[in-house]
Structure formats: C-alpha cells, structure tokens
C-alpha cells in the first residue's frame, strides 16, 4: 500500500452526522446550526477525541461552501505569544462574515496560554463579540480562567467509547479493502485508550505491513518499549551492575526516544510482578512515585532514573 494521505484526514467526518460516539454534543451543536447562531464554546478533553473535528464540522454546516473564509484555526501553543494570537484574530475579525452574521475563530490548546494571556484574550473576545465567535479547545477546562469559562458554553469530550472506535475502524476497513481480525481491533482499542487519532494512526501504520491486521502487527507498529527491555534494565540494577543498567537506560531514552515518564510507569508495572520480598517492593513503589513526581515538577529525567536504579541496586545487595 502506498501512502496517499493520513487516514485521520481522509476519514475525518465532514458533517456532524458522521461524528461517532458523541450523540449529545452533536445534538446541541446541530441546534446552533439550525438557529444560525451560537455562543462562544469551550471544548475540553484529551487528545484525539473529536474537539477539532466537531469545530470543523460545525463550521462546514454553518456556512456551507464559504466555510473556509469564515473559519480561522489558530494554535495557542505554537504561535509565539499572545500578541501574535491577537494580531491574527484582529486581522481576521476585521472583515465581515460571508453568508452569516459572525465568523468563527478556533483556538486550539488554549490552556497553553498563561493566565495573563488569557485575560488579554478575554478582552479580545469582548471587543469582537459582535463579529466573531470563539471556539476554545483545551485539555483541562480548569486551566482556563473563570471569566472566560463563564462566557462560554462548555462541552466535555471524554475519551471515546470503545464501540465508537470499533465502528470507525470497521468503516475504514471496508473502504480500504483491508481485513482487521477481532484481536487486532481489541489490541488497537486497548492501546488507543479512547484516542481516535492514535487508533487510526496505528491502523494505517499496520496496513503498510500487511493486508490482514492482527494483534501482533498492531503491537509491532505501536511504539512502546518491549516489557523485556525494561526488565533487562531492572535486572541489571538488581544484580548490582549499575553501569550496565545505566547503559540500557540511555538506549531507551536516546535510541528509542522514550520519555522519562514512559519508562518510569513501565518500571512500576514490572516491579509489581518481580520476585522480591513484598516489603522491599512497597518501598520501591514509594520511591518510583517520588521520582515520577519530581519529573512532573521539572527535574531531569536521566538523573532521577539513575537515582532510582542506584537505589534498586543498593537494596538488593
């Protein structure tokens, strides 16, 4: 199979009807289309659960052919600073909407804005409220300041249900002329954890390797450290060979490109199934938690993981 375009794009729903797994949200959005009016919206939820898709479909239905002129997509985390965001919004909002009363500005990752920037954004929203509606998308609505939240209708997008993902994968299967075995479907659902982007990417990656997609193919293409690799590292530490453990750690961090958090959560899983005294196990889990917390607080992943491995080497001696 040759690459044509990402399946996330090829199979992105064009209308609200095509969106799977979001019946209540779609119903509310459709009522905006019927009334040809809407408030500012706040879409909150993790990656790959349909926030952007719903915004795009809403715009298409609201404006029909001319949706492109009336819809501006901006990314808060990629643009440099709130001023750039404001300039772009200003330029866009200045002109009249075509075939409608207002334009839509979709601001992705708006929780990446600092609270100062959000206050500035709030001003902007007020100034252009007659000509523009905002759809703000974020991972956590709690990171959006209260004044903005109160000006928006809030939509919560949880992880997609497994049924919804299966339905979509089966549609793609039919249209692409591939076969997905049931264990393949289960594997994708398990790894995707409710993230449609992830599910579709795994499926497409697997399809480059074979026409029949089973769970083995799925695990092969989803980039995770093999459990054995983590186990080797822990075993090296347990036998007191710290330098060997560090070398394995480096290969996971550098060659595999895993994040410190990835490695630490997988280490946690491995430690539980390790054949060591239970009290030591509990002590390790305490330490692992502490080091993960430090990573979240901005500590250095290699130093923290080294300290953890050194700690494991010591207890076993």
């Amino acid at each position: 199979m040759n690459f044509e375009k990402p399946w996330t794009e090829k199979y992105r729903p064009q209308t609200l009807d095509e969106v799977v797994g979001r019946p209540y949200i779609i119903e509310r959005l459709r009522s905006y289309v019927e009334r040809k009016n809407m408030p500012h919206l706040l879409f909150a939820g993790p990656s790959g659960v349909g926030k952007t898709t719903c915004a795009l479909a809403l715009a298409r239905e609201m404006y029909g052919e001319s949706w492109h002129q009336n819809f501006q997509e901006t990314n808060a985390s990629d643009e440099r600073g709130i001023n750039v965001v404001r300039e772009r919004i200003k330029d866009f909002a200045r002109t009249m909407a075509l075939g409608g009363n207002f334009k839509i500005i979709f601001l992705d990752e708006s929780d990446a804005l600092t609270s100062d920037a959000q206050n500035a954004l709030r001003r902007t929203m007020e100034i252009y409220t007659s000509t523009c509606r905002f759809i703000l998308s974020c991972n956590y609505s709690s990171k959006i300041i209260a004044p903005i939240q109160s000006r928006c209708a809030v939509f919560r997008f949880g992880p997609l249900a497994e049924d919804a993902i299966e339905e979509k994968l089966r549609r793609i299967e039919e249209s692409e002329g591939i076969t997905i075995t049931q264990d393949g479907i289960e594997a994708i659902k398990y790894i995707a954890e409710g993230d449609m982007r992830k599910a579709e990417n795994i499926l497409q990656a697997a399809a480059f390797l074979g026409k029949e997609i089973n769970h083995e193919l799925v695990y092969q293409v989803s980039s995770r450290a093999r459990p054995e690799e983590i186990e080797d590292m822990i075993q090296a530490a347990i036998t007191g060979n710290f330098m060997a453990a560090r070398k394995l750690l480096d290969s996971l961090l550098i060659d595999k490109g895993l994040s410190g958090e990835d490695i630490i959560t997988q280490t946690h899983k491995q430690i539980i199934s390790l054949d060591i005294p239970e009290d030591i196990k509990v002590d390790f889990i305490d330490k692992i938690g502490e080091h993960e917390f430090r990573l979240v607080e901005g500590a250095n992943e290699r130093i923290q993981l080294e300290a953890l491995l050194a700690r494991i080497s010591k207890t076993q001696r």
Partner: peptide, 29 residues
C-alpha cells in the same frame, strides 16, 4: 496538514515511518 498542534503531530511520526518503508510511498509522504 492534520489540524494538529505540534504536540499532537508527534502521534503521526511512527505511522509515517512505516509509510516510508517503500520509497515510492515515501515520495508521497
């Protein structure tokens, strides 16, 4: 091309890697 932030765009890298196994397919990428 995918309506994604640079953070979310990372999710495409493994798939694109497989898309490039065949050079003809990689040209399309």
């Amino acid at each position: 091309k995918t309506h994604s932030s640079t953070y979310d765009a990372k999710a495409f890298l493994p798939m694109l890697n497989y898309a490039c196994i065949k050079p003809e397919s990689g040209v399309n990428v």
